Simulated assay, not measured.
Amino acid sequence: MHIHVDSETGRLTRVLMARMNDFVLHEPMNEVQQRYYAVDAPRPDRLKAQHQAFAAALAAAGVDIVWAEQRTDTLHQVFVRDIAVVILDTLVVCALRQPLRRNEPRALDGLLERLDAPVARVTEGFVEAGDVMVHGGCLYVGQSPRTDARALDWLRRRFGDRLAVTPLALAPPFIHLDVVFCPVGRDQAIVHAPAFAPEALALLRGRFRCLEVDRREQFGLATNVLSLSPEVVVSPAHQARVNGALRAMGLHVVEVAYDEVAKLGGALRCATCPLCREPVPAAAGQGTIP
């Protein structure tokens, strides 16, 4: 199986997802779960229905879905993004910090047997791929409670000769880069500005035309979208203002209901691990390093 990812927005042709058949509620692991689990806990039937509808939308768009192995010891498996990331031609198997999630990378075993590509396992520190983005010649790495300096150094040694490894420190309580920042289109991004220090925010504003979202929108996962191409983005239907702003920026927005899944603290990007994207032509002016 061929893999290659060098951007967040190149045309998506193959993606890894995980079914939710064995999902059960568990001890809350993030502020969104802490908010909802006590007063409006997500319903398994609605979770599965929304997740299946999202997968159907991807399949209808011509995306080849590879399903991770189902395991009864990985109850949070829906957020398959965190367990692995394709960086250029290499699949990186991540090291998850939360004990409840440590078994999740085992769901990759069947996929690894099919790959015709290098596989690198993180052997130092912790990193979850919600903190990792390849885009415009950069490898952006969120420095968060889930990804530490040792893993950043590992990524720099492994990929620093081909990509500009760019750490972005996150302020509490944000636990992943993709809940506060996501490139879209050719030179745009959705950003929650308060999550970043001034110098990091200046860097992002210098490289992208930023659509900034407020705390309410961020809490509802407005940044956690999935691009199908530089022209098309899939976004949660409940983010009406953001979706309108994306359309005003010239993007075609495919809306899917995902508010029930968002109660878990992740949305569309979290639930997908792109395995293959077509390169975006350099002439498109996409997010190159100044």
Rank of each mutant, 00 (worst) to 15 (best):
A55I: 05
L221M: 13
R162C: 12
D22T: 15
A271S: 14
V32H: 00
L268G: 01
E260C: 11
E128Y: 02
V122G: 02
D6W: 00
L168K: 01
F219D: 12
H135N: 09
L221W: 01
V242S: 06
F174R: 09
A283T: 14
R114I: 08
L170C: 08
C210H: 03
F208W: 10
H2A: 15
L100W: 13
A60N: 10
A55Q: 12
R146K: 09
A282V: 14
V232R: 00
V253T: 07
Q34Y: 12
L226K: 01
V80Q: 02
V134F: 01
F54P: 09
R156V: 12
L228D: 04
E199R: 11
P194V: 00
V15C: 07
D259G: 11
N30L: 06
L264K: 03
Q52E: 15
A193N: 02
G125W: 04
E124P: 00
A169F: 07
C182M: 13
A84L: 11
S229A: 01
L211Y: 00
G185K: 00
D153K: 14
H4R: 12
P281N: 04
G265T: 05
A284Q: 11
R71I: 07
H51Q: 07
A169G: 12
R46I: 15
D214N: 10
N30P: 08
H192K: 03
V132Y: 02
G244A: 12
L58E: 01
R106A: 15
A129Y: 01
Q50W: 11
E212G: 07
V80I: 13
G130P: 03
P173H: 03
R209K: 08
G62M: 07
L228I: 02
P198K: 00
E255F: 13
A202C: 13
R121K: 06
C270Y: 07
L96V: 07
C273K: 00
R158Y: 10
A267W: 04
V191S: 08
P230W: 02
A38L: 13
L25R: 10
L75C: 08
V253D: 04
E104F: 06
D64G: 05
F196W: 00
V280W: 03
